[in-house]
Design a protein around this nucleic acid. Structure first.
Lengths: 255, 255
DNA sequence: TCCGCTAGGTTGTATATACAGGTTAGACTA
DNA sequence: TAGTCTAACCTGTATATACAACCTAGCGGA
């Protein structure tokens, strides 16, 4: 069985993604220039150009003519993964985000948590339980489990200052995410923490995020249905005919 | 004010997208080969290659080495827009889709409908109201308005045979979509049609779709919260480490 | 008739080269 | 000192060329 070698430009891409994944290259770090890749990797400039251009389209790096190529920070990564950080989302609306940590502890993974994170029953994970506020109104309960060796210092972080999402992204770029959205009737604890009415439904986002080929965190995000909605905008790259004003208009349809 | 001309490869892309949008090129039609573009458009083959390669990444066309380049059908387009056709979604689960048309009529656009479709109050639009069934269990109410001149034969279609989504896509590829997801308490009509329990929340997807630079359809899709969820999978192109088995496993977490 | 081979068209990749335009540091000048 | 200019580097685009791999129609032989 002969192994078909990957194309050279793909090997370059893989190398750079690898360096980003391992933290060798961190957000805003400078990536080798095309000419440096030509010299170091023995490829033509067009091949190096293709690798870096595709990494740009995929959101890994950003390029500035005349300056160089730089690893994307979380903000630009998000256009690939569409995994929002709720703090940024609230800031975008011009509101104030705050957050209260209810639990930040070690726990043994059981049942669905162990299965979702691809680890054995009873292996230690970190458990985070937070409430996020938008202008002091509770807007999300974040119930998250994190694989321990992915973020060993998870228990020492101050998540009221930096959200778990931002922290986890700073450790290593998140490369893949699966999510499921459900409408649910909240249980009493959720309803009380989110100050919801008795018959108000909640919008639950269940999200599993992958880094470096394995699941690293599993989160259940509960939102009050009357105060929260998920907005999405899908278009092929390069086509953005609808303006943000249009999206605002669509939002305004909410009575 | 000097107009900076677009790069040549972008002009090629625009031309081809234009031909797809206008219906000049239809799904599965053959797109000019690289060599034909070289001859007809006076560009080098590498430039034609770049245009077609990027259109592939964006989901407009698919390429088969040795055969040629072909306009994507709806199925492959969807990987760009992530706008699913519920009939396909149900078929993917190995279940039977059926559908009942409750209303298929002319209507004057008022209020939010007119605003969402960027048309004046009182302009005629088509109104569709359908219930979709999965194995004879109601799973979605589709409440859709369509701009009249986009689909003039809308009232003559048999939507119990071909869904509105499939029909509209066959007219012209949908290039952009905005959607908002909400958890709502359903009104009595929705609850009855979807055979929902009294305190069961509904998951509502509000979706506006664009074609050729203007909004053409506005749909409200109501689902029973206990029987429906929205799944998504985000990854940079070329990276798909999680298998479909993993997604199934995540789905299985639903108790 | 049927099978197999081949010629020609197609995409996929890789290189060498060229020029335009953005950015910056540092040398040079007034 | 303060301002200006330039050299060096960067990305972005475009072309010509080359070779590999894939696909298919059609020809030719058994």
């Amino acid at each position: 069985m002969s192994v078909r070698t990957k194309p050279r430009y793909q090997q370059l891409k893989d190398q750079i993604i690898q360096r980003i994944s391992t933290g060798d290259l961190r957000p805003n770090d400078r990536v080798p220039s095309e000419n440096e890749l030509v010299a170091a990797q023995n490829v033509s400039r067009m091949t190096a150009n293709r690798a870096l251009r595709e990494l740009t389209a995929e959101g890994y790096v950003k390029r500035i003519a005349g300056r160089g190529t730089f690893v994307s920070d979380f903000r630009s990564q998000s256009h690939v993964l569409e995994v929002q950080n709720i703090a940024d989302e609230i800031a975008d609306r011009g509101h104030v985000h705050s957050c209260k940590v209810l639990r930040q502890s070690r726990q043994r993974a059981r049942g669905e948590i162990a299965r979702a994170l691809h680890i054995a029953q009873g292996v230690e994970v970190f458990h985070l339980l937070l409430v996020h506020f938008e202008n002091d109104v509770p807007i999300q309960i974040e119930d998250r489990h994190v694989v321990a060796d992915f973020a060993p210092e998870c228990l020492e972080q101050d998540f009221e200052r930096e959200t778990p999402s931002a922290y986890l992204t700073s450790i290593s770029p998140l490369q893949e995410a699966e999510q499921v959205v459900r409408a649910q009737t909240p249980n009493a604890g959720v309803r009380e923490r989110l100050q919801m009415d008795a018959d108000e439904p909640s919008l639950v986002v269940i999200r599993r995020t992958w880094s470096n080929g394995r699941p690293v965190t599993f989160a259940r995000l509960h939102h009050p249905g009357s105060r929260y909605e998920l907005a999405g905008h899908y278009a092929p790259p390069g086509i953005h005919k609808s303006t943000s004003a249009d999206v605002v208009q669509l939002e305004a349809l909410k009575r």
